[in-house]
Design a protein around this nucleic acid. Sequence first.
DNA 1: TCAATATTGTACTATTTGGTACAAAATAAG
DNA 2: CTTATTTTGTACCAAATAGTACAATATTGA
Lengths: 217, 217
Amino acid sequence: MKKYFVLNGTILYLCRVEQNKQEMAGRPKTYDEDTALDEAVRVFWEKGYTNASADDLLKAMGIGKGSFYLAFRGGKQELFEKSMKRVVEQNFTELRNAVATCEDPVQLIRDFFLGLTGTQSPIGNKGCYFGNALVQISESDAGLKLLASQYLKVLESIFEEAMQRGKEKGLLKSELAPPVLASYLINLWNGINVTRRMEQNSDRLTELLKLNLAVIE
Amino acid sequence: MKKYFVLNGTILYLCRVEQNKQEMAGRPKTYDEDTALDEAVRVFWEKGYTNASADDLLKAMGIGKGSFYLAFRGGKQELFEKSMKRVVEQNFTELRNAVATCEDPVQLIRDFFLGLTGTQSPIGNKGCYFGNALVQISESDAGLKLLASQYLKVLESIFEEAMQRGKEKGLLKSELAPPVLASYLINLWNGINVTRRMEQNSDRLTELLKLNLAVIE
DNA sequence: TCAATATTGTACTATTTGGTACAAAATAAG
DNA sequence: CTTATTTTGTACCAAATAGTACAATATTGA
């Protein structure tokens, strides 16, 4: 089964198409691609795209150069491309399902934001994987930046869906249209992920979030 | 004459203390330090901290290694430190004076934000010098990141001053305290500088800004 | 067992990088 | 002119970096 978004005419697959791991001849891989990808994500997220060297990545992934350049001929760029896809799969899909099925999608979004300031937040001080990419990656990697912005727009579309459902259910006072609210929310997302790096005080961050979330009361 | 902010017990000088360029013995410099610094700012802003190599910087500054490491013993880090100071001097000081003296400081801030979306904006797509630094610089350069966040707080304090004056002059409907509004505005600043990299449509950006600026109506 | 195939590890290379050392050059003061 | 001082340009260096080549290895299927 395929799951995907169509966004601006581009198809963005969110869930891996199940590959029947057909038994094939040849030496078997010693590593699991998804597990290795998760490690790469961790390194990229912690160090940033540019600061993460091929060496850092290979060590974390636990594979050698031979395996790496076989699996990712495009090197670091291709790895990052796949790592972004992985982050979307692991983080957005779940959120999107929740938005589509929960009782109160507006409250879900509120909790999504308010959960950021807690110390146990999985995102921590690392910021948004895609927002970081937009700021860290050089202009010469325009393709990667474009992908990152497309994925951010996927998040925006999830916000929009939540607002749409919230409106249908009468859970939103705001007169503003869902796309406008979604644009407000993605900007809040982008902002808070930078602001939290300058403002350590989590009470003040929470205050700031509550003030912003007043628009979706 | 000195100009400085005191922020969290740290003194941040904004204007260079006039140095009586006393004639001293020795071969004279072939370059102007501030001009070279401006070129370094340009490179850092365009390429990002990590992507800017010493070579890129030296070429842009028009000086050789000998001169560079004499003037900036700390290498790239020290150069960036001084470049941040320069950006503050050139951008914040003027804004702060305007806030302190203009008729309508609230309108000034509105224009400050709305001016961002125009194609002729000096900032363009490069984002905020300090926000970029917070996202681009690795954890191992904690000192630089701290400085960047302090400078962002200077901007926040300018917003606060504007709100304070606006309130005194009866130009603000909002009941919110100036520090709260300032925190809202610095987060908007951080957000919009990322969002504009994913949202090219300047009309939508303007809409987004206007919606956000409603809080200081 | 053997052929075909896919993966791995290592050795190697070329380039970039950040930085040092130091002699030559240009100035002021005596 | 000489000395002290400061800046400059170049040559050099060691480490990091990205990437290639290829033989060895481990598997499937005939």
